[in-house]
């Protein structure tokens, strides 16, 4: 989690997440980057699954938003980062939202807490009434 700030490569892509179709596009884009970054098959699967959960959260709970994704470097390591941003209602109780099984909607309550377990770095900024930003990174081993 700590260490120097990851340096993003120049060519990060941004896509809007406004429909179920965009959730599919988001995970396909992250998969392409994970392959380019030469993540192991298990790590690719974990990252793409986390991206799928977070993209759906952006759509369902955030009322839509954007995903920005690309390769990042820190020291000599390369990773894939994906940042999900919405201007939705925000999360009033973060501890609760990160608890397994808790959901404010109709889901299983595993999206946020599960996504956090599947990645190496996870940061979440949220403000009630303003929106939520979740950033995840998976580093090549």
């Amino acid at each position: 989690m700590s260490g120097p700030r990851p340096v993003p490569d120049a060519d990060h892509e941004t896509i809007t997440i406004e429909s179920n179709d965009d959730v599919v596009r988001a995970r396909q884009l992250v998969r392409t980057l994970a392959q380019r970054c030469k993540l192991s098959l298990v790590d690719q699967t974990k990252l793409v699954t986390a991206a799928s959960e977070l993209a759906r959260n952006t759509l369902v709970y955030g009322g839509g938003g954007v995903m920005r994704t690309g390769l990042v470097r820190r020291d000599s390591r390369v990773g894939v980062t994906a940042v999900f941003e919405d201007s939705g209602p925000g999360i009033p109780d973060l501890d609760l939202a990160l608890t397994d099984g808790w959901t404010s909607g109709g889901g299983l309550g595993l999206g946020l807490s599960g996504a956090r377990r599947l990645v190496d770095d996870f940061t979440l900024d949220t403000e009630v009434g303003r929106g939520t930003q979740v950033a995840v990174t998976k580093w090549a081993r």
Binding site: Q44, E53, R117
Partner: peptide, 14 residues
């Protein structure tokens, strides 16, 4: 089910 999918599902909590 692929092995990577099984590993990910369990880690996800399902």
């Amino acid at each position: 089910m692929r092995p990577a999918v099984a590993i990910t599902l369990v880690e996800l909590g399902l």
